[in-house]
Simulated scan of single mutants.
Amino acid sequence: MTRHDKFEEASLPLFPEDILDPDEAPSTPLSGPRLPSYIKDHRTRLRQRFRDGGADAMPDYELLELVLFRSIPRQDVKPLARRLLDCFGDIGRVVAAQPERLAQVRGVGEAVITDLKILEAAAHRMARAKVMQRHVISSWEALLDYCHTSMAHRQTEQFRILFLDRKNRLIADEEQAEGTVDHVPVYPREVVKRALEHNACALILVHNHPSGDPSPSQSDIEMTDRIHRALHPLGIALHDHLIIGSSAELSFRSEGLL
């Protein structure tokens, strides 16, 4: 990153109304205490449109601009928003991208990475709060939303276990393993061990396919069968195995694979 490419970063409130001149500057850093009114008007218009119509009123790059306003208070952030979307595809993948990948995008520094990761963590917490300690069957759509929020945009495979009590309430959710773009190592013995430690009566397995296609591989089917057979003698049910794709999911139970 050259000196001219680097953005000046600082942490500010997302909608700073009373802070001196937090509004958008041209791509060249400005000197002086005030910014041109047309620059301020752009940020004001975007904020007002968001307040009036919410996220549905804005394309991805403008929503991303709103986030970047906080991270980069005195730069034109539209070019950076577009670069991020060009690199990762959509705002979900931008927010879920690994910090190392984000840092490779020209103009991204620590403030941008931190704010994007805060946004990701908040989204995960909100989705998780809707399913914890709730009956899984009656909260199935919320559970799927949580899985998609947590895993659909990851660039590597992740294997998670959802632990249920005897009333099928979610009592714990753990990442068991993380792998490559098309493989994640899973060991039935470790799955059984964690189920016993949580005193779980049932499990739901979840993993993602970074390719976006939730179709199970033969190794997915064989691994699920090994875990199922390891749990059965202990009286622990395997309710389902969900594979999360970019815009859809596959249920082993619904497909007759379990």
Rank of each mutant, 00 (worst) to 15 (best):
A97E: 01
H124I: 12
R83E: 04
I137T: 13
R128C: 03
I118M: 14
M132C: 03
D115L: 13
L162V: 09
K78R: 09
A97V: 00
V131E: 06
S138I: 09
L144I: 09
L80E: 04
S138A: 13
S138E: 12
M151A: 09
A96K: 13
M126V: 15
V112F: 03
A121W: 11
R125F: 05
D115T: 11
Q75L: 04
I137V: 14
A81I: 04
D86S: 11
P79Y: 02
L170C: 03
L143H: 09
R154D: 06
H148P: 01
K117H: 08
G179N: 06
L85E: 04
I161V: 15
L102T: 02
A103R: 15
T156G: 01
R82N: 02
K78L: 04
E110F: 10
R134F: 06
L143G: 07
G109R: 00
M151W: 10
V95W: 08
A96V: 09
D165V: 06
L102A: 01
M126T: 15
F159T: 00
G89F: 06
G107F: 07
Q155I: 10
V108R: 06
H153G: 02
Q104L: 10
L102M: 03
E178L: 04
A172M: 04
R83Q: 08
A129T: 03
P79K: 00
E110T: 11
T114Q: 06
V181K: 13
R93W: 05
R83W: 04
E157I: 09
R101E: 12
I118E: 12
M126E: 15
E110L: 10
S138Y: 13
V94T: 00
E110M: 10
V136F: 13
L162H: 02
K130H: 12
A129Q: 08
L164C: 08
A152E: 07
A97R: 01
A121G: 13
H124Y: 11
L162S: 01
A127P: 11
C147S: 10
K78C: 00
R101S: 11
A127G: 09
A127E: 08
P79R: 01
T180S: 14
G179D: 04
A123T: 09
Q133L: 12
P79S: 00
C147V: 07
L170D: 00
R166N: 11
Q155T: 14
V136I: 15
L80K: 08
D86F: 06
K78A: 00
N168E: 07
A127H: 11
T149E: 07
K167E: 09
R160V: 06
A122I: 15
K130L: 11
A177D: 04
R154V: 03
L84T: 00
G109A: 02
I91G: 03
K130R: 15
R169N: 10
P79C: 01
I137A: 14
Q155M: 12
R134C: 05
D145S: 13
G92I: 01
V77F: 03
P99M: 07
E100D: 10
V77K: 02
Q104V: 03
D145A: 13
I171L: 09
